[in-house]
Design a protein around this nucleic acid. Sequence first.
DNA 1: GTGAAAGCGCTAACAA
DNA 2: TTGTTAGCGCTTTCAC
Lengths: 352, 352
Amino acid sequence: MTTMKEIAQAAGVSVSSVSLVLNGRDSGRINPQLANRIRETAERMGYQPNVLARSLRTNRTYMIGFISVEVATTPYAGGMIQGAQDALSSLGYMLLTVNGDTEQALESEIRALKRYGVDGFLYSAMSNRVMTVPKSLAKFPLVLVDAAEETNRFPSIEPDEFRIGYDATTRLIEAGCSRIAYVGCAEPMVAQTGRLAGYRQALMDHGRGFDERLQCDVLNNGPALRAVEALFDTEQPNGFFCFNDARAWYVYETAARHGLAVGRDISVVGVDNHRVFAETLEPQLTTIELPHYEMGYWAANKLVSMIENRPLNEGDWPHTTAVMPLLDTPSPVKVHCTLIEKGSVRDTPTTA
Amino acid sequence: MTTMKEIAQAAGVSVSSVSLVLNGRDSGRINPQLANRIRETAERMGYQPNVLARSLRTNRTYMIGFISVEVATTPYAGGMIQGAQDALSSLGYMLLTVNGDTEQALESEIRALKRYGVDGFLYSAMSNRVMTVPKSLAKFPLVLVDAAEETNRFPSIEPDEFRIGYDATTRLIEAGCSRIAYVGCAEPMVAQTGRLAGYRQALMDHGRGFDERLQCDVLNNGPALRAVEALFDTEQPNGFFCFNDARAWYVYETAARHGLAVGRDISVVGVDNHRVFAETLEPQLTTIELPHYEMGYWAANKLVSMIENRPLNEGDWPHTTAVMPLLDTPSPVKVHCTLIEKGSVRDTPTTA
DNA sequence: GTGAAAGCGCTAACAA
DNA sequence: TTGTTAGCGCTTTCAC
């Protein structure tokens, strides 16, 4: 690794001149010719700045810590991390990923990140629980990804679950479904609360009542499958809004056993957490993909804007769309999800 | 952040003494009493070493770069990264994750990692292509994860695809299946080559021939489903080895349409890439989970052992098992996958 | 046993 | 306009 010192020697100038030039602070301070010579020399010698040495002096590392709690192994994390990486990469930052699945690991990883001098933190916890940010993070620049505290102390971003439920149900209504079931999760989930509320509101707004017999919350495997079969038998729904892939699968399996074809006899809208169904079922299944990538991307941009003390640019907003093909629309329809920034709500710009 | 200097002042000693003590190099150099006083002071003041400053001096950053090429968004990456993180965390290292999906991004991220002075690299590319390590990485400590070059220049780890195919097929044979189909991918995949070879070898070894009519390579969606339906109709297999979740789903869907029950009328073994089926189908589907976590874990340990110039410990080997419940075995059976270390092949120790 | 001092590569105040 | 100097926090040699 060539250093500034070596460049200074080769170019016959002092390190400070080299530093000024290579950091672009030379306007009106260094003779343009000299500056060019320095730049050339640096180029020729393949100079790469030692960011650690710089950090020591400036107290800025251009490193961001990404803490994930109980999400790293889920299929969601990959998208969020990649979104954050892509955003940070173009901003000249580096991402340090850790996971704090246990309370103890969490605190120790936070300490580690602090030792490495990260400029700020991204924090992501499974959004199906109420969460609290560790107090050890409270005084640092921090943005929550796919999570939010009740206190709204920190900027955060998460899908608009209510709207997902509302839009999905509306699509089913517009597709002509007369009996729309909700196939959800029997365990308490924050996401479900919002989606269910959206489902009910959409029914209301279209002059329909909520029928609790059409709400079918299940767990996994055999019992879940049998519960869905019972739903088919007793309620004969012709529209289904499914909490996730697993629930959508129970509907598919049951439909197949009953000789019903999805896309002809029944309509299904489901949130596609695992992406396997997009590959398998599309365009039969109407999938809603949660914008994990976009959330990571936005959160990283937001965090850096805080660190650098400047406003967020328009371009820092991700484009969030989900494909929703349905019975009556053979070609895919773009539907936008809403990202919520605590303190102020706005939609993401749509491309299509 | 309290510094060594502050501790030295508070304890009335010099920084060098503090450094020696806090790094455990004080035996026979510093008076034990003094050493204790220093340790206490550091403790009391909540001292955390500044790893960047240390790095500047020692040329060791205890940072590892994890480069993923076209894998970050797949469900696999999460497991590998978490495995690497867990291993590194206990070794006192930090993971910097980047992704190099395009050639250009790759080189620029590698340069970035070098600027940050990482001690070594983990490199992961989608294993369904022949890969070549960028020459910019050649002179650094490097371990390949879920990937391998033809040249065997670097340590690498990947699942033993042959053995997966062999074991899966053998299980189906032992479960009493007389006609075992292979439902694979119509696109060329390195993994498939090995699994198919294992499938054929297992048939051979049990005195059965390979019947190409039972090999059904499909793509996605409707066409794939119809191809599997045709397979059911014309060949009536009673055992299925599926390349991945999507292929397993086609079998399930078709079985349901034909009134056949998995686990009673037919047996299915499938590789579970997305983890959704483990939640949904188990224990009907016999799932093989690829040991991504374990590969990440092993690779990180291997890399650090190279960096620190010491042998790999027994404990650095991951425990790799996959659950394979089947028709005749209601309770799960542990089956071990094999990890391949280039240059020398050995099995991972099994717990169960 | 302990401390003074040099220096890792860089930035930034200050001199010239 | 350029160079000198100090120092970020730490390690390490070398005197004492």
